[in-house]
Amino acid sequence: MSTGDFQFLLFLGTLLFMIGATGVLIRRNPLVIFMSIELMLNSVNLVLVAYGRALNSLAGQVFAFMVIVVAAAEVVVGLAMVTRVFRAEHTLDVDRLDEMKD
């Protein structure tokens, strides 16, 4: 893999991470926020695999595999929490979930 390809992949990973972080910051639907977090985890996976390929190491792929496992567990628990909050509050707007402020 050439240096140009490697730097392009690093740039792509950073750009996708930035888009995901922006989604977390500007959206109010918790489901879309979760999807943005998934996007951020995926961009980190891309950088891990690109580094592993550039350095002739398998550690990048193994770590990306672990990240996928943790992401799956996070989605399961997070969606269960979203379901429960929706049943209790009947809203999917994180700006309205502010009982703990009072």
Binding site: V49, Q61, F65, I68, A71, A72, V75
Partner: peptide, 25 residues
């Protein structure tokens, strides 16, 4: 990038399981 195993895992776990869960919710 020569990561065939992660290609399969990405399709099965993300595009398969996780996104089906999202759409279902």
């Amino acid at each position: 990038l020569n990561a065939q195993f992660l290609f399969a895992v990405q399709i099965i776990v993300y595009a398969g399981a996780v996104m089906v869960l999202f759409v279902f919710i």
